[in-house]
Design a protein around this nucleic acid. Structure first.
Lengths: 196, 196
DNA sequence: AGGATCTGACAACAGTTGTAGTCAACCGAG
DNA sequence: CTCGGTTGACTACAACTGTTGTCAGATCCT
């Protein structure tokens, strides 16, 4: 009977809760220690759970990493969609999107690092071709007016790279600039990409 | 007696040769398997040498990785310097530089991956703050005319990110475009960074 | 030929990894 | 109270890591 109640909650509830704890622990490690520090054992230590529960929710270390990445990616996507909705002009759309993204990764730099760095550094993600940035880039690309298919794609890829790098530099402190100026510059990048 | 000749060569010569083999093996692994696959044992297998000779030339695994990175970096720097020399106008300078860089990483994608990805993924490099791209970017940035110190820095960081991302996408095949068009677009990026 | 030097294969160390299994203790339904 | 689902601590395994050490054999100078 899976519906049986144990410590006030049902089994499925606790199982889901443990899964959340594991994903949260994975986010913490992947966003600070990086890929190498995100081992099954380390995740379990962080989540204060034993390996048994790890394999209860994930078949692999790989599956956990992918789950963390997709979790953060979905959050970012949602933030972007929310930000863009109800923005009338292209300029305000760009500004709202950039602001939302900056807020997301400034409030929680771990998410920024997972989103921007992890797919380049973790074999579990690179091998699966898990790259959300191209997806975001495609979203951006659709908004672009100039050029043919390939042209728009190149512009979008370059734009995403530029934004990523600026964010990363901002995150690790090597680019000391106020948040407002960061946003303003990124908006300029987005708008400039459509320009020439 | 270090000058003594053994199998036709002196000891120092053979030692230097082994070092080269190790660096070459490190480049191969770091540029294909990535940081995780570049272990001391794997490098030695690849170089067909034993661990003994590894520690004859390097104190650490870290030292080998740094040597590989600096080796490739020096090659790239030299290619850039050569390309820019004798180019009269800023436009031709940008074009020559981009073309040289593209040729370098297209002829040998392993070098591209080492140059662009390794400093983000390998702790041995991140910890030492070994990032040559900002250096290259600074070189480019000096040519830029507009804006104050911070402005130029932001522009340079963004430009490097844009170029990196385009190169990476091109390298892993997700951006299918002719080499000429790639160069042309990158030149446009470089020139455009100076624009607005 | 003798003796110094160099070479390469391999073992040993303690550590971590992913993954699986065991076993005593707990908890709530009947 | 008993029984079966649930928990957590623990162990086991083979594979790998960085690093150092050993030892038999090859190579050259005198």
């Amino acid at each position: 009977m899976p519906g049986r109640t144990w410590a006030g909650t049902t089994l499925d509830d606790r199982k889901a809760l443990r899964r959340e704890q594991l994903v949260a622990a994975g986010l913490e490690l992947l966003g600070t220690e990086g890929s190498a520090g995100t081992s099954v054992r380390a995740v379990c230590r962080q989540a204060k759970l034993t390996e048994r529960y790890f394999y209860e929710s994930f078949a692999d270390r790989e599956e956990l990493v992918a789950a963390v990445y997709e979790h953060v990616g979905e959050e970012a996507r949602q933030a972007l969609v929310d930000a863009v909705r109800d923005a009338p002009t292209p300029v305000s759309r760009a500004e709202h999107a950039v602001r939302a993204f900056v807020e997301l990764i400034v409030d929680d730099p771990r998410k920024g690092r997972v989103l921007l760095l992890a797919p380049l550094t973790d074999p579990a993600l690179t091998r699966r071709g898990l790259h959300l940035l191209p997806v975001f880039a495609a979203l951006v690309g659709e908004q672009l007016s100039h050029g043919d298919e390939t042209e728009r794609r190149m512009v979008a890829v370059g734009l995403v790279g530029a934004l990523s790098n600026v964010f990363i530099a901002y995150l690790d402190g090597s680019l000391k600039v106020s948040r407002e100026r960061l946003v303003a510059h990124c908006v300029k990048l987005v708008l400039g990409a459509d320009g020439h």
